[in-house]
Amino acid sequence: MYQNNINCPQCGSALALNFRHSKLRACEHCGSTIFLEDEAVKLIGKQSVLSEEASLVQLQQPFNYEKQSYLPVGHARYQYDNGFWDEWWVINNAGNGLWVTVDEGDFAFERQVATPENISFDHYQLGNETQGWLVTERGHAVCDGFEGELPELLYQGESFNYVHLSKPGAELFSLEFFEKKIKAFKGHWADPFEIQVEG
C-alpha cells in the first residue's frame, strides 16, 4: 500500500497519506484543510470537527468484506432531509480506492464511473424506471465536513441533489447533481453483518 507523509502548512504536524491520488487532506491537529496538487500542498481553509457518531467503520481501522481487506483513510458526512449519511474513502489491498456509504446500517460499496450524457435531476422521479434501474430515493444533501484524506475536493456547506437507483441483486447506481458537474457512482448494497472489523 502507498505511504507518504506531508507536513501541515499551518501547524507543521506530520500527516500520513495512504492514497497516491489524494486531493484533500484534513489536519487532525489544527483542523486545516490542505489541497494536494502534484508535489505541492496548499492551505485552503479550516474544518469544523465532525460530531462523533457510532459507526462500524472507523478511520485507520481496517475491515474485511468478501475476502478483501479495506483501510478507511477518509470520511465525509452529508446532511439530508431525514438526518445524515457517512461516506468513507477506503483503500483495498491492491491500493485502489472506493467509497463506502453508510446510512443507519445501510451499507453500500461504490466506485465513481463515467457520467451518463444528457441527464438532469428532474428526469429521475421516485418509482420511475430507466434501463432496468428503479429510482428508489432522491433528495438534497449538504456536505457537513470531512476528515482524513480524500481523492477529490469537497467544500463544507457545498450542496447537491442526489438520486439513488436500484437493480435486482443489490445493485446500486447513484447520481450527484452539483451546480457545475454531475458525478456518477456504481456499486452494490452490503450486509453490515458481513463486514468484519479487524482487531
Binding site: 457518531e53 457510532a54 459507526s55 462500524l56 443507519e104 446500517g105 445501510d106 450486509d191 453490515p192
Partner: peptide
C-alpha cells in the same frame, strides 16, 4: 446505531432474527 434496523420475531416461544436483504 452501527448495524441499523432489523426484526426479532417471537412466535410460539421461538425466536428469529430477521434483516432486510436487497
Amino acid at each position: 446505531p452501527t448495524h441499523g434496523y432489523a426484526w426479532l420475531v417471537y412466535e410460539t416461544g421461538h425466536w428469529v432474527f430477521l434483516r432486510r436483504t436487497r
